[in-house]
Amino acid sequence: MTPPVFRFAPSPNGYLHLGHALSALFNADLAAEAGGRLLLRIEDIDRTRCRPEYEQGITDDLAWLGIGWEQPVRRQSEHFDAYRDALAQLQAQGLVYASFESRGDIAALVTARGDGWPRDPDGAPLYPGSRDAMSEAERTARMRSGEPHALRLDMTAALARAGPLRWREQGTGPGGESGIVDSRPHVWGDVILARKEMPTSYHLSVVVDDALQGVTHVVRGQDLFWSTSVHRLLQNLLGLPQPVYRHHRLIRDSAGRKLSKSTQATALRSLRAGGATPADIRRIVDVPEP
């Protein structure tokens, strides 16, 4: 029997905090219990925010926690061609279109539509444009001229092609969802798959990477629970395998907010410098020794 494959996939745009420790320890413990493999993936597609010192900090913190991982480490910035190929498959299906509004343009359009404009699960307003607002000939001409643009998934067309989708949830969602969960990708609107200056997005790259790395179990925080809907849709459209998902609780600050990498008080390196031990971290995040 093929051993299960887990992965921990941080972005090197800051130092790891207690929330990352929870996820990394949980993945490592589950992999060990199942006799499986643990991969480390560096999600560094945002080259403006990701830095080598943060990647070094990630490996230092994980090693200090006693977590081991297989080599080589996959860095997304080294695999843009794989994401371009996946995007080309979606384009060949007629499911991708270019949009040209800036963030300011989108904010103005949303404001003009009033307070009732729908928002995605992260709280951001849905894209207020549509594919029908411009002819394909005009889009092509504007792209060829070098105009900045985003490449979006035509959600209506994608849902018509894929039909209803579900995923197997071994953890719990923010509303207590578990077991077989119905996907709701429509709540994200026409998500961005790539930009002129960036050949991929989080949604596209994570789906491609999980498939290429043979990941069988995706274990991550509840803040990404409803992102799974988009991932299931892309897996279906690209003919990729479906992992088992397990979303875990989040570590929050005293105000109830999800931890941020800018919160230095919860950074593992700061806690370590203050004398904390790996056992202390396990106790704080409530992940007992296996």
Rank of each mutant, 00 (worst) to 15 (best):
D105M: 08
L109W: 11
L109G: 09
P72C: 05
A157P: 06
A9I: 06
H247K: 00
P174Y: 01
P199C: 13
L18Y: 04
R252M: 11
H79K: 09
G171L: 03
S205L: 07
Q264R: 14
H17W: 10
L65R: 08
R47V: 15
A137W: 03
R269P: 00
D46F: 12
R103F: 06
R51Q: 15
V73K: 04
R131W: 08
T263V: 06
R252W: 00
S205R: 04
R131P: 05
L62H: 06
G66T: 11
L240D: 07
T156K: 13
A86S: 10
Q89V: 11
P72F: 04
A133C: 07
R184G: 00
H248E: 03
I58E: 03
L233F: 03
I45W: 02
D286L: 12
P125G: 07
P185M: 07
E78N: 09
A141V: 09
R283Q: 15
D190A: 09
I42Y: 03
G173F: 00
K258Y: 00
Q56N: 09
Y97N: 05
S178M: 02
S99W: 00
A279D: 15
A273L: 13
D29H: 15
H20A: 11
S11G: 06
K258F: 00
R283C: 13
M198S: 14
S201M: 05
P243E: 02
R131Y: 05
M155T: 02
M155L: 12
S23V: 14
T216H: 04
S99N: 02
T216V: 07
R41W: 05
I42E: 03
S99D: 15
E33C: 13
I251Y: 03
G35I: 12
E55R: 04
D81F: 07
L38I: 07
A34P: 05
A137C: 06
A265M: 05
A108C: 08
A255H: 10
E138M: 09
P278W: 13
L165R: 13
Y127S: 06
L95M: 12
V244I: 14
R161T: 14
F6W: 06
L16C: 06
E147F: 10
Y127D: 12
R75P: 00
D209C: 08
G274F: 10
S135V: 05
H17I: 12
G35K: 10
R168H: 14
F8A: 05
T2I: 11
L90P: 03
L250M: 15
P3W: 11
N13G: 13
V215G: 03
L87I: 02
S270E: 14
R161G: 01
T2L: 13
R152F: 09
D61H: 02
A86N: 07
D122F: 10
E197V: 04
F100C: 12
T59V: 15
C50M: 05
G57T: 02
Q89H: 14
G114E: 09
R184D: 13
E289L: 14
L193A: 07
D154V: 04
L18A: 12
G179R: 01
P174S: 01
G36M: 11
M198G: 00
V287I: 15
R49P: 12
I180N: 01
R144V: 05
D154H: 08
T200D: 08
T216Y: 04
R249W: 04
L234A: 04
E70I: 02
L87G: 01
L40R: 02
Y202L: 09
A24N: 08
I281M: 12
L240V: 06
R51C: 02
L87C: 04
S262V: 06
L38A: 05
A82D: 15
G275K: 07
Q56F: 01
L22R: 15
